[in-house]
Write a protein that binds this DNA or RNA. Sequence first.
DNA 1: TATGAATGAGAGTTCATTCAT
DNA 2: GATGAATGAACTCTCATTCAT
Lengths: 193, 193, 193, 193
Amino acid sequence: MDGPLAVERIVEAGRKLFARQGFHATGMRDIAKLAQVSIGALYHYFRSKDELFLAVVRRAFEERLAQARELLRQGLPAPEILRQVLTSYFAGFAEDPEVAQLLSRVWAPEDPALWRKLSGLVEEYARAIAAILEEAQAAGAIRPVHPLLAAYALLGMAGAVTLRAAGQDPLAAEFRVRGAQELAEFAWHALRP
Amino acid sequence: MDGPLAVERIVEAGRKLFARQGFHATGMRDIAKLAQVSIGALYHYFRSKDELFLAVVRRAFEERLAQARELLRQGLPAPEILRQVLTSYFAGFAEDPEVAQLLSRVWAPEDPALWRKLSGLVEEYARAIAAILEEAQAAGAIRPVHPLLAAYALLGMAGAVTLRAAGQDPLAAEFRVRGAQELAEFAWHALRP
Amino acid sequence: MDGPLAVERIVEAGRKLFARQGFHATGMRDIAKLAQVSIGALYHYFRSKDELFLAVVRRAFEERLAQARELLRQGLPAPEILRQVLTSYFAGFAEDPEVAQLLSRVWAPEDPALWRKLSGLVEEYARAIAAILEEAQAAGAIRPVHPLLAAYALLGMAGAVTLRAAGQDPLAAEFRVRGAQELAEFAWHALRP
Amino acid sequence: MDGPLAVERIVEAGRKLFARQGFHATGMRDIAKLAQVSIGALYHYFRSKDELFLAVVRRAFEERLAQARELLRQGLPAPEILRQVLTSYFAGFAEDPEVAQLLSRVWAPEDPALWRKLSGLVEEYARAIAAILEEAQAAGAIRPVHPLLAAYALLGMAGAVTLRAAGQDPLAAEFRVRGAQELAEFAWHALRP
DNA sequence: TATGAATGAGAGTTCATTCAT
DNA sequence: GATGAATGAACTCTCATTCAT
């Protein structure tokens, strides 16, 4: 039709709907409608609903990873990197609440087959965080911890708060205002030497 | 039939299947079969699948809450309570891996209608944790934090590590061995004055 | 609704539609509509479309087998049995043209998975014919032949003529009139000592 | 690309796939892939899937007809022609099992529209066999039969045995060894004066 | 009370075919 | 001529739920 390429519109529509409603509540027909393409087009680009979902999640993860790697590349001190990674992970929610919800859904997908695939993506992301922690640990910037376990802890921590902050009530608003700062402090206290 | 009452067998079957396979992958037929009752019996005791799921989750939360309240009641010092709550939350997995998975699934339920109901349960649990934190804070046993936000952070942290520890690979085994201790330290460092 | 039981109406509707239109051209919706049951009822009684088709074919085969066995049971001389089996196989078409078409479709089903299951049924039927031939052979009533191969030949022969006789044109009418007699003679000449 | 012309590769691919898997299980994509042409190319050479299938079947029939006519042209005695036609029809399976399966599928096509077109081809082939029988009958070389009905009987007979011989089990192997000889004898006994 | 046959909307997916490039 | 992205109707099958018995 118009605007971006069909495949772009599909991924974008998938991102929105999967984030808002979850995997099962989102039908391929819904995605096709929102993306203004035919059902057939969906299956032209993605082998199945699972594949489309994975593509959507993979993209979201990669965007976050790219941010983290960029911070690492800048050679900032470890606590500062941590602070910024967490802050940006959480604050990303302000610009893009849907992705925050999407990533939260990744932790315990309904479908066992999906779970296996998704946990691979999650692990990849966790390993990237763990690599940052290891480096900081080697430099003596943080206390000795199990890097991957700590990475999972950080991600879970941020995920739970983020998800709560996506609500409509006053508490969610409060979380949105104070969340990033509180989380960064929480993490920094947990990890400082 | 035999053994526990029908309604007990239903909730138990629901707990097992919802935990193992998730909400959508578990059919009412499956639950009826495992509980050795008829489909009709399911609908005799629970208005709908949602209601049954909520009942299952509510029970799981209440068991955890009871543990936490018991610890509080014993008048232990705050750090010790925290340590024990986290340890027991996590270590509960060893005795009952299914509940750990069940509770992890609670964070981002697929169905929007379920979400509203479940988030109420989660919030209730988080508020109980927050109450402990507030008390400890008032006693000067931990540093000043946003109690509810910290509670969500603790729950998310424990949930993510717990879920990863439920896997079959060596890393999961490692998490099962070191998880409780690492998590308790992580939390304690994050919260100590 | 009314009349025969639901499962009976389903099998009957399947028989009609599969015979008239073939397996792929017949949808489950069509069968449900003709049987005046819901789609769900179809799947309540049959695990899949394949299963329903197999049930329909099995029943058709069993009716034919029952006829053949009844003739055998009467202790007629071999040529007479053969003549009557062929005649009744063919002539059955007059009363029930649909079954003739149904059985013809069995030879080369489209679906490989179906083929495996169907060929079992066909073989069972062929073996029953072969048993008759063996008995006749032992009694010296027919010349020595490979019984199973001859059974397949007889079935193929009858099937091809029957199918052609199901048409609407004058030749089909002629086949319907002369087919049974010609086939029986053909077979008898082929097998007589 | 390379090798034979595109249209040749298409028909050859169609022959293989239709024979192996049947009409419905074979997609235009599969044929295009095996023939190493684009989907567009398929529709450049053939109006539809039906047309392509008919072209494939027509070619297979014509090859068989050419064989039969060649035998007739050699002025052999009737029984010998019959024997050779049947033997070559059946034995053709040894060199080209796929065509044997393809022709078997012709008897009861799924699609009613296809059926009408295919039965024309089958009838044409049957009439050619019938012509041979008429000639032999006129020469007193075979007993009086309905030529076209006998032709259908012969084709059905050969088809059923051929199809069974295409299997993987010991019986199929036995049919492959003894089938041609048994069939020729069967036919000759059925037709001799 | 307890059953399970029956429902039917809606799910994901397929695939022959078209047509702008 | 040749391509393959795009179409969308139609498919089989699922499953929470109902209700006559």
